[in-house]
Design a protein around this nucleic acid. Sequence first.
DNA 1: CTAGGGTTACCG
DNA 2: CGGTAACCCTAG
Length: 803
Amino acid sequence: MMDILGDSSSYDSSLPWLWIIEYLAGFKEVDTSVLQGRVCNGLFYSELVEMVPESSDDLAKSTREMIALRCLEDLFDSGDGLNKDGVSAVDNKIVFDLSQSCEDVLQHVLQEADLKMAGPELSKWDVHPFIMHKRATMPKCALQQLKDTILEGTHPLAASLKESSGLMRVNDIGRSGVDDHNAPTLRLDGIGTDSMAANGNLIPPTSENGNGLSADNLLNDNLLPSKRDRNDLTTEETAGASDEIQEQSDHHVNAKKLKQDGVCADQSVEQISVPPHGSELLEDFSARVVGVTEGEGCDFANHSPDEVMEESQYPEDVHDECVDSERPGQIVDVNDGALQHSEKVVGPVVEKMPQDTSADEPVDKVIVDETNVTELRTSIGAPSTETQRKDSVNESKGEMEHLSEEEVSSDNDEYHNERIDVGMKKNHFLGSQCSLGNDTLATDGCTEQKLCVKCNKDGQLLFCNTSSCPLAVHENCLGSPANFDENGDFYCPFCAYSHAISEYLEAKKKASLARKELAAFIHMGFEHRPGEAKKRLRRTEYIHLEQNGHNEIGENGQLGVQEKETTSQNGPFGHEVTNSLCQKSLGRKRQSDPSGSCVNVNLPFSDEEANVINGTISVSNGEKVGKEKMANECASVGGLEEQQQDQAPSDPKCDGNLSFVNSDVSPVDQREAEKGIRKQDLRRASSDLSEKPVIALNIDGEETSVDENDKYIISNYCIRFRRQEGQYTYRATPQLRRKKVPWTTEEEEILKKGVKKFTRFDDINIPWKKILEFGSCVFLSGRTTIDLKDKWRNMCKGSPKSK
DNA sequence: CTAGGGTTACCG
DNA sequence: CGGTAACCCTAG
């Protein structure tokens, strides 16, 4: 027998075998990183096989395939797509040892999918449907059976395996009377937080695995919210099933801990059945319920009706992101295992639905469940991905494609979530309607018995035409006209809605593509008349800086498209364009060739001047840091801008068009702009680089000089810039000077108070920072400690007594 | 982080 | 053009 788990002969009882078994048996999405270097144990595997001799072949085969698929998934989860050598790429990506021994299988799988032929173009979107399909066709009963055998403990090797796998810990501790024979239950009964922590096997050893993952990390970081959510479900339900006070206490302790992550531990089962994030939960639910309740039902496709539907209907959308985010936290822990039990008790079978854990935007408004769901979602939806989303501005690459995808992705997230919600709602619905008896099979039974899911009565029923949807309902019970497609097939409201979302997403993609093409078209237009465009740009004093090879207004006058759709009041091409460009442009400055090539700068003054100025620009490493901050801040100016939107410069021509705003640096004092660059002082001159009129180009490339109003905004821009310049480290490159921002009387007052408050009579230094914080609510946002100091100095000059 | 000298913008 | 407020730069 091939030792697919590696060839290490060491028998480390602390290895997380539980995870491995869970993973293998249930296609669990284990966080494989924690298994790195720990999965080699030939003895263990041999024993496993020995315990299930009749299925050992299947075990080996399916295990290898599962692992290979997992490798494939991991690879594509990274978004890299396949390299020319898919397998080697996988090897690089998949760090845990299992992959090594599955190379041949993976190779085979790849060939089967003809993936290698696709090469670099192959995207994970192409792969996931295949993977899911592949999985659906693979048996997993052998592993499930294996686990069962271990847990039953009748086999001579069961004891040792039980212990080394970690199964014993959860199985032996607090097995309750409601255990199901066929479904070895991993329970948390009697295991409080402390005992869990003490149970080394339940949580991967921290230091040993080399991942730096602590138990807490695993619980709090690796486990995704919904996973924890489910844990809560588990514990809560279990508590409910037991009268042991201690047990409940432990559960609550556990729940409390988990709750810290924004999970409401007090959610009822029903509430939990519609979790905020849903995806992982669904995944696990699905897999587990199948494994446990269906016994020999090894057909993955049979497990979750909608899964197949989703599979077929949303192959692209569903799988691209669904695995992405579920992976990091997928760990089979005790709670995880305990869920099996809970599910059996509870009943509702949560189907696998398209997953989208990257959905950082809670879709409260579309949540189909009642009560606390919205709150749940809100509390959980954001954490890990929120920042990523926010980073979109900073990481704006100026690539149309990039942004488009991002935009679509963002939007899709919402609808992925929505679909998840629909699916969950469906399950919840089915569960609540059919599983009055605490049996997950009740759901199936309900539909199999051809009873209306609404009234539980038979009669003239409409059956959802989605292949795997079990829903049957009386037309009268629908509450609205039945949905029939063009073929006259009925689709239940859940499937109909899911399908509608799918179509919507598809349309979104098309729109995005169309816009991309439009951008390309525009780009081409300028390419064909570079001179004209260039002239225009010069005439309008448009400053262009090149970055990363992405053109906005290129040196040739090319107009690349930088757009970022926003939902701001300004519509799709509002301020974010400005911000993005602003940020980008600064980035360009940072990256501009120190040699002073002026090619990327279309300055509003003569070439000579430009050259002179450029010659003075040198970018030191140290400066990069400072400017990096500036760039970031520039992006953040958006917040300010939003606040000022009512006053924000606008030009009718820009509305609805692709607007290109010279926000390269800060906008501007119009008067200064009129003066142009006439000072010989290089410092001033280079500062003035930024003080050009804001120019907006409409889609035709016509420049539109933005209204010169609103110095306030400008001032704030400048202030913000300066603020980020930070601590005035040495700057080789002259910086723009901030606009003057007069002190308000309120500011002066708070300054006085602050000085009084924080300065002792004999103090030599005044803690301006504290004072700034003290009066932060009054001080204008751009004020710095230096400003305070200077202002105080001036105040003292004018009125020495004030101090 | 702060102090203090220097610089710039603005206004009368 | 000078005064002043605000900002900039550098040293410690």
